[in-house]
Write a protein that binds this DNA or RNA. Structure first.
Lengths: 188, 188
DNA sequence: CGCGCGATTGAGTAATTTCAAATCTAGTGG
DNA sequence: CCACTAGATTTGAAATTACTCAATCGCGCG
């Protein structure tokens, strides 16, 4: 099965062949094309997703119909509505495909099962969450005090590849600025 | 030992008496007075902290000497510089006491030990991190698109008690607005 | 009573948004 | 291969919002 997934997990914790086979067996696959929804607001959320290939956005639409992007996900990233997934509530965010996508699907039940049975996997997700938490803190710091140019530069530093694959409109929404303002920045 | 800590953990996962005693034995205690530092920027970070009593702030100071508050922590909250703690790097944020504080201290080693030995504790921290991640996502959504009044109202809804214990200057910094702007909002 | 600190108020300024229009680009069909 | 269209991006100008700086207020405490 997916070598990439194994490498991804083993960046954090080693797995025996048997363990990995067991883990991999818990996943199913899913393919979506550009513009298709992975999760829609107000729907139930049953799965966590790992991106094999493609690019997605997770976003909330506010009362005025404005979209605010919470996260992008490309190869090797996890994505879901974790609030809904953890608490078994309805989705408050939507996720759709910016490009054609290939995903590995891990249901809540299988995730919990894996975490109960395999120490290493429990630790994997624990460390992933903690790293995600830290990453969001960094993003908050930039939203709190940095101007649009600084925010853009940071994202450019963090993942230049992502920027090239994104329409500017979406990037603006992620950075919390209007697309006109983004357009007036200097783009390295 | 701390009944409160046991209740805190058992909100997520049950523990036997023996397990809890073992867990509790991994913590030490620490008392600090108002204005004292728990963590200073550029220092090493060895511990995670759980607040028994008191109120602290975690913040970053930018190049212009402006403080940006990442997190407050009061009773029942965990706090540390997780970036530094996880990666064994130097602190990029400072944490100090807004009120006199009483803390339970869990070293990185003991935390990892507990997570390796006790399934339930590994799951506890995993779920805590995930919940923390979701909470930060919500905060990001408000920073992305809401005006100061909405941000204030949200925090008022989330924890009105916190607001009463905080100097407005700190609140402004947390919300990402100037104290003058905060002062001009309607305070319910 | 007066000092000191935090909070408030006022006025001017800077930055970003908004609205509108023009330009560019990629994909489509002739 | 070219013209055409829809969508995305850029540009311009006005309006809005929040910031900054400065002054004042209010309260607790010595």
């Amino acid at each position: 099965m997916s070598i990439a997934l194994r490498q991804h997990i083993e960046k954090i914790t080693p797995l025996t062949n048997a363990e990995f086979d067991y883990v991999a067996g818990m996943f199913t696959t899913k393919k979506l094309t550009k513009h298709q929804f992975l999760i829609q607001e107000d729907h139930e959320v049953f799965n966590d997703y790992w991106v094999v290939k493609g690019l997605l956005k997770a976003y909330h639409t506010d009362g005025d119909g404005r979209m605010h992007i919470l996260q992008f996900a490309m190869e090797d990233w996890w994505i879901s509505d974790y609030q809904a997934l953890n608490n078994q509530t309805r989705a408050t965010i939507a996720i759709d495909c910016i490009e054609d996508c290939e995903l590995l699907v891990l249901s809540r039940e299988n995730k919990e099962k894996l975490c109960d049975e395999l120490h290493s996997i429990a630790n994997f997700f624990r460390k992933k969450s903690s790293a995600g938490y830290v990453a969001l803190q960094q993003r908050i710091l930039f939203l709190l005090n940095k101007n649009p140019q600084d925010r853009y530069n940071r994202l450019y530093q963090l993942s230049p590849k992502l920027l090239q694959r994104l329409p500017k409109t979406l990037l603006a929404s992620y950075l919390g600025v209007s697309r006109e303002t983004l357009s007036r920045l200097s783009h390295p």
